[in-house]
Computed example of a mutant assay.
Amino acid sequence: MLVGAVSGLAWAAALRAFMVEVAGPASTFGWIGTFEGILLPGAVAGGLLGWAEHLRRTGRHHPWLAAAPLVFVLFSPWVVVSMFVDGGLGGGALAVPLFGMAGGYALAGRGSRPARWAAGAFALVPVPTWLVAASAAGLGPPLGSARGAWTAVLFLSLLAVLSLGCALPHRGPPDPSRPAWRLVVAGAVCGLAWGAGMRGFMAAVAEPVSTVSWFGTFGVILPAATIVGGLFGLAEHRRRTGGRARWRRLALSPLVFGVDPGALVLVLPAMAGGYALSGRGSRRGRWSTGSAALLPVPAYLLVVHLLDDIGSLLTPHGAWASVLLFSCYAVLVVACAIPHRAVGPGTGPARTAVPAIGAVPGDPGEGS
């Protein structure tokens, strides 16, 4: 549940970055609207989906947890009233969870095929809707610009991640026989959303002079994040299926971010944190690497103190930007732990029984 809550918090913080881009200069931050209406329900919904994954791995099945995204409506019930009173204003708070729930049902592979196709078609509605809204209605940055394209990628990748999360309560126990490409694609989608969310943090701290370039965003940040996410998906598949020769080298996947050397300031501590979380190695080694994983926190505070006013972190905007950064960082740390973790139970290579000395085939003592 904790991993799910942290992931949900990062997802919600990234969604808030999307809302900033849509609103433009008119965007405002409030403690209630941002933290009570977006970040807190995001963490709760993520925790519920994390619980669903735990239940799934232990052989239990609770499809009702797929409705976890509706927590956003429970925390902000006024949006339902606003949909009717203000001509649909605030309807996105209800539409986004419904799109994710429909996509999750379609991806889960359970139920009748017509129902899954219908749910999948409904989940894809945001794609043409956003293209029309961004192009014809002028909602958000122009779609033909680098900023507009990044905004679209951020929105649609977050919806895809939500659909993947909502699929968990519908699915059965993990099946090691499933092909690797499923987890690779899921990891790549999550990596893309992670990279787009981190780009939102960069835009937030650079305001009001923030610029988005095609090369920096689409040539470096997003491709690197997608590749790293796919490699971590492959690592999870290898872990579930008993591992392969040298598969733990996938722990070096985040070094792909080294195409931008400045990213290593965050990547190297995250890799250390992943080792600490994995539970492998000596306790002293894990404590040492865990301490190294905390270095970005004082470094961030020092940079803010030198370049800005440390008091800005106590504003709604500054607090949100900090939550976005460190929740995304925590997600990266959790992902970095995957290649270090022990092979999944019951998924390792089958053991061959060795007959006991003097045992007769078929004798109860064989293999004892």
Rank of each mutant, 00 (worst) to 15 (best):
D175F: 03
S253T: 09
W117K: 05
G24W: 09
L124K: 04
V79Y: 06
R199P: 06
A167S: 15
G367T: 09
E36L: 12
H54S: 14
V303Y: 10
C328S: 14
W78M: 13
G195N: 05
A330G: 08
R240F: 02
T129L: 12
A299W: 10
P77L: 08
P339S: 01
E207Q: 15
P208D: 01
V228N: 02
L314M: 13
E366T: 10
F75Q: 03
G59E: 11
W51E: 13
F84V: 15
P339A: 01
E21R: 10
W51G: 13
A95L: 15
W214Q: 12
G200V: 05
P298D: 00
A118E: 00
L159H: 04
V256L: 11
G358Q: 10
L74E: 09
G42V: 06
R239N: 07
A121Q: 01
S177T: 15
L301A: 10
V205H: 03
A102H: 02
L49S: 13
W287D: 06
G37P: 14
E366W: 10
P298A: 00
G4C: 08
I227R: 06
A134N: 03
A245G: 11
R240Y: 01
G219D: 06
S312A: 07
Y329M: 11
W287M: 12
V3D: 05
P114Y: 02
T151R: 03
P339Y: 00
P142D: 10
I227L: 15
